[in-house]
């Protein structure tokens, strides 16, 4: 069974299965990813993040419909946290995307974060590649804005939308979450609620203080996702940002930086994998014990470990 070929031929089940294999870290998945890699790099990848309750899923759903109206095929990846206690997850984003579920131009996948943030961004990035190779023109990656995980995903995305809602406290939520810097576009959702103007103003002020001259000045779009207001403007903003990336040469730069990072990350993993396979359990136990006894600090222990590996111990 050649999943990669089937998915390149447009088989939805093959795409779905490959994402499962990626999530499971299954054997053989590298081979499949290798096959699809030449077919990636086509899609506009958009990260969407913001605090819980900001209406992200509804916004993603409305945006997807708008993009479909513009003739684009859309992939959606909705990431929710795995429960640290049970390892399970409840993924409810599709509730707000029901009308998309039978549109053959849309592919939606719910993903659980499954532990470490590094793991989250890696599996998500690979799932994005699957949908890219599958032929989705735009891929929307929705995550709950909680910090580092989003920054990782923003690096893999071309454009990032940060969703804000008015009246959720005195402070812009993104500042609290530390994700202000990653926004290319702000969507002030639920803009029919009191305080929307104020939120927009605060964002503008903040951006004026923090944006380098000559750099992309993030766009702010007011939306009411439940009634489709501002959604066309949001899609326009994304197009504008993509155009800017291309025209300014920043796209090229970003891609280069991303690719390098991917290479380094992959190399790290390769290396660690090899290290793990080669290491003797006894060495590990000895070094751990030295650290426990506080004779050796972690860094020195690690150096020792690498040294032993090099010498082929």
């Amino acid at each position: 069974m050649d999943l990669a070929q089937r998915l390149l031929d447009g088989d939805r089940r093959a795409a779905a299965r490959l994402i499962t294999l990626i999530e499971n870290g299954a054997d053989g998945v590298e081979l499949e990813l290798k096959q699809i890699y030449p077919h990636t790099g086509q899609a506009h990848i958009v990260g969407i993040t913001g605090p819980p309750g900001a209406g992200k899923s509804t916004l993603v759903s409305a945006l997807a419909r708008e993009l479909r109206g513009r003739g684009k095929t859309v992939g959606i990846i909705a990431v929710d946290p795995t429960s640290p206690f049970t390892g399970g997850a409840l993924l409810g984003d599709r509730i707000r995307m029901q009308e998309l579920s039978t549109d053959s131009g849309v592919f939606i996948r719910s993903m659980a974060s499954r532990g470490a943030l590094g793991g989250l961004s890696r599996a998500t990035a690979d799932a994005v590649k699957v949908l890219d190779a599958f032929g989705c023109n735009v891929i929307l990656v929705e995550t709950v804005g909680a910090g580092q995980g989003e920054v990782d995903i923003a690096r893999a995305a071309h454009s990032t939308i940060v969703v804000e809602v008015p009246g959720m406290g005195d402070e812009i939520q993104a500042i609290k979450a530390g994700i202000l810097e990653i926004a290319d576009v702000f969507a002030v959702n639920k803009a029919d609620k009191a305080g929307a103007e104020r939120t927009v103003m605060e964002l503008e002020m903040m951006l004026q203080m923090n944006t380098r001259p000559g750099a992309w000045f993030p766009l702010i779009v007011k939306t009411v996702a439940t009634s489709n207001k501002g959604i066309a403007e949001l899609a326009d903003a994304l197009e504008k940002h993509l155009r800017y990336l291309r025209d300014s040469g920043e796209l090229e730069q970003r891609l280069r930086a991303n690719t390098l990072r991917e290479l380094v990350d992959a190399a790290k993993e390769e290396f660690i994998g090899e290290l793990w396979a080669e290491l003797s359990q006894r060495d590990l136990a000895t070094l751990t014990q030295s650290m426990l006894d506080h004779h050796l600090d972690p860094r020195s222990a690690a150096k020792e470990l690498v040294r032993k590996f090099r010498n082929g111990s």
Binding site: T58, L90, G92, I95, R96, Q98, T226, S227
Partner: peptide
């Protein structure tokens, strides 16, 4: 008026 979608709370 548009249509309502349920809230999913975990």
């Amino acid at each position: 008026f548009g249509e309502y979608k349920e809230v999913m709370i975990v």
